[in-house]
Amino acid sequence: MIFEPQTRISRRALTVWKISGTINSFIFLLIGAGAVVALIMIYHWPVWIIPAFLALCLAYGYFFIFLFPELRWKRWRYEVREQEVELQHGVFIVKRTLVPMIRVQHVDTRQGPLLRKYRLATVAVSTAATVHEIPALDMAEAEQLRVFISRLARVAEEDV
């Protein structure tokens, strides 16, 4: 058995994901409601599809506002070591990734309006062929990490 990486991402990530899950569910509700109204008015579908749709919305909301963000947060781990970055994430399928420092080309931090409000940022580690993101870290931590990784990556200068 290989130990899983230890560092967790910010607990505030959960709040952000729940908010974006809520927005997501709301959009789903709006579009779905439009479709249901159209089906009943134009195509004369039976009225019982309304409760069916509402049940679907509840399930959708539960999954995207509560269950998935919780699972996702619980699973998200990362570790930045001297010679490599290791990530672990996934809701059902757990994916673990190793990125050697000598392959890191550059590191970015990014934040949208929602992340900024909660003082969070996403760190993206790019190799020549792939991009790996660590979402929703505390801003100070993200900045620290960015500097840390780019310093380590610079030490290990080697070409593609």
Binding site: G90, F92, I93, V94, K95, R96, T97, L98, V99, P100, I102, R103, T127, A128, A129, T130, H132, E158, V160
Partner: peptide
């Protein structure tokens, strides 16, 4: 090994 950019390992609950 020196040319591999990243390596990943995946497990679904069923695989696990």
């Amino acid at each position: 090994k020196r040319k591999v950019q990243s390596l990943n390992r995946k497990e679904s609950p069923f695989q696990k």
